[in-house]
């Protein structure tokens, strides 16, 4: 059960979106309740800091072109898992900027015809429900880390390997299915924090669910996506046992 928020200052449009959302919920019998809001103050009043939510946000509210973005940032900070959809007319939108700042689920362009808009909104609700069932409800793990004050996360099932290099002390490198990144951290802290990550050697921490095979003679552990790492003598037997 989660809330679907609609932020739109134009009454007619908002009513139109409300109809689409209500229909979708009714047809699929989803467990969602709808919160309709027409300006930014009442958004903050009506916002409930739950674990999850779906937000359809108009970018320009009462003449302020950055209103939608500010609301989106607020939502992202208070509800890291929220699904955010921008509904807007602005063609010259800074898509890449929005992706990095807010990671929206989708964009709905008002200039498209009504059939397309309806399809998109419906699709977004269905996707969100799917994600909610798979991840939030089942409490799927994410691997989270920070650079400065910015929070990043990678679904645990996508994480393959964490390693350090001696040229860059104090930094951990991450390899996952779709992402490669480095951040300031140490492997000891990460090893302690996550049960499913195994320390196979001084500079490698692997995800036990992404192992492929182990060459005990050369002490090389093979992982998904053609990654591999060396294993220390001490850990060799531990790694071998993982394959039993």
């Amino acid at each position: 059960m989660f809330s679907v928020y609609l932020l739109e200052d134009d009454d007619n449009q908002r009513a139109y979106y409300r109809e689409i959302v209500d229909n979708t919920i009714m047809i699929n019998d989803y467990a969602m309740n709808v919160v309709e809001v027409s300006n930014t103050e009442s958004f903050y009043d009506n916002f409930s800091k739950d674990q999850f939510g779906l937000f359809f946000l108009d970018m320009e509210i009462d003449g302020d072109v950055k209103a939608g973005l500010k609301i989106a940032e607020f939502v992202r900070n208070n509800m890291p898992d929220a699904r955010i959809v921008f509904v807007t007319t602005h063609e010259e939108m800074a898509f890449l900027t929005l992706e990095r700042k807010v990671s929206p689920l989708d964009y709905v362009l008002k200039d498209n015809d009504s059939e397309e808009i309806k399809e998109k909104i419906t699709k977004d609700i269905e996707l969100t429900e799917q994600y909610y069932q798979d991840s939030i409800y089942e409490k799927e793990m994410t691997f989270g880390y920070k650079i400065g004050s910015k929070y990043f996360s990678v679904p645990m099932k996508e994480l393959i390997l964490l390693y350090t290099e001696k040229e860059t002390p104090g930094q951990v490198n991450l390899e996952s299915d779709n992402r490669e990144m480095s951040f300031p951290e140490n492997l000891n802290a990460l090893e302690a924090k996550y049960d499913n990550l195994v320390r196979v050697d001084k500079s490698s921490l692997v995800n036990v669910d992404r192992l492929v095979s182990y060459d005990a003679r050369k002490r090389i552990l093979y992982l998904d996506n053609d990654f591999q790492c060396s294993v220390s003598i001490r850990k060799s037997s531990v790694v071998s046992k993982l394959f039993k």
């Binding site: 779709n178 992402r179 490669e180 990144m181 300031p184």
Partner: peptide
């Protein structure tokens, strides 16, 4: 430089 990080994603 320890203040620089690189994020490579496939989206």
């Amino acid at each position: 430089d320890s203040n620089l990080y690189l994020d490579t994603e496939i989206v």
